[in-house]
């Protein structure tokens, strides 16, 4: 039993880090632009598809990771300029509607372009190590570390980078930032592009563990939303902790129930959070 728990702990941690990567992109976009990006899951899915395309042409997983991130970042920037920029100053709820429309288009585009059959990304590291009675793939460990590295890099960039400081200034006071000469619309576009790139990167990283198909975005966006609410919306650290928490719970729950039902665990966590701590589990109590 104890070894079962340890195995699930590793699985939960590695998928938790992927979820954290998806959720940080979502949190970043929400925290800075007040935009709930319904199309985030679709960017994740398109990133995975883009990864398969680059992988087939170049044969290199790491190039696929890079190429997909850049391509989806450009797509994200284009989407932000064409549909979200005109909505600045309107009710934030309209951004949900607009990004929902985008997600419909992207999801069906993927279905049309790539067909309904799931594709597979070959993992770059196929070796495994002995972990109790099972062979545990190194790749899962690598994902967790890479995700952590990307999130860490984002944090360092926001904290110390010149443009990171621009982004934080824009979050704190849009008008003041603009008065100080920061090109706020450009910052918004850049943030959306960074968030999209993170979604794409997580899509490529996660691709080898599951098949790549057009509907994979929905599962993830739902989980990411739950995590973002549980962690406290717009709070980067909170959503990372919540990702790990929820993924671990789901991993442990799958010892007793089927994976489809394990999803309910995260729903229950959400309901309990809403009941007892609507501002989020991992944030200081608001005054």
């Amino acid at each position: 039993m104890a070894e079962q728990l340890l195995i699930q702990l590793l699985i939960g941690l590695s998928s938790g880090m992927i979820l954290a990567l998806v959720a940080s992109g979502l949190t970043l976009i929400f925290g800075i632009m007040d935009v709930v990006n319904f199309a985030h899951g679709e960017l994740f899915m398109l990133g995975a598809y883009m990864g398969t395309t680059v992988l087939v042409t170049t044969g290199s997983f790491w190039l696929a990771l890079l190429g997909a991130s850049v391509a989806i970042a450009l797509l994200g920037a284009a989407l932000q300029i064409t549909t979200l920029r005109p909505l600045v100053g309107r009710d934030p709820l309209t951004t949900i509607l607009a990004t929902f429309g985008i997600s419909l288009v992207l999801q069906n585009y993927a279905l049309w372009q790539y067909g309904p059959v799931a594709r597979k990304i070959q993992e770059p590291i196929t070796s495994q190590f002995q972990f109790f009675h099972i062979q545990f793939p190194w790749y899962r460990i690598v994902i967790a570390i890479l995700s952590a590295a990307i999130i860490g890099a984002l944090w360092l960039f926001l904290k110390y980078g010149k443009y990171g400081i621009w982004i934080r200034a824009t979050t704190q006071d849009r008008i003041m930032a603009s008065a100080m000469g920061i090109p706020v619309p450009l910052v918004h576009t850049a943030v959306f592009a960074i968030g999209s790139a993170m979604a794409a990167a997580s899509g490529v990283l996660f691709g080898p563990l599951v098949g790549v198909n057009h509907a994979m975005g929905l599962d993830w966006i739902l989980k990411a939303f739950i995590v973002v609410v549980v962690g406290g919306m717009g709070n980067l650290g909170g959503s990372i902790l919540a990702s790990l928490f929820v993924s671990l719970l789901e991993a442990f729950a799958s010892l007793w129930v089927s994976p489809a039902q394990a999803v309910i665990v995260s729903f229950v966590v959400l309901i309990l959070t809403l009941l007892f701590r609507p501002t989020g589990l991992f944030v200081p109590t608001p005054k």
């Binding site: 709930v36 709820l93 939303f225 089927s258 309910i264 729903f267 809403l274």
Partner: peptide, 28 residues
Amino acid sequence: YFATRLRDIYFAITTLVFSQIFYVIIFT
């Protein structure tokens, strides 16, 4: 009872999550 504790975007997400709960229950 649960969803109205939240506003705006949070309300939208919570209702979405609830409908998925019932979907999973009915589906399984």
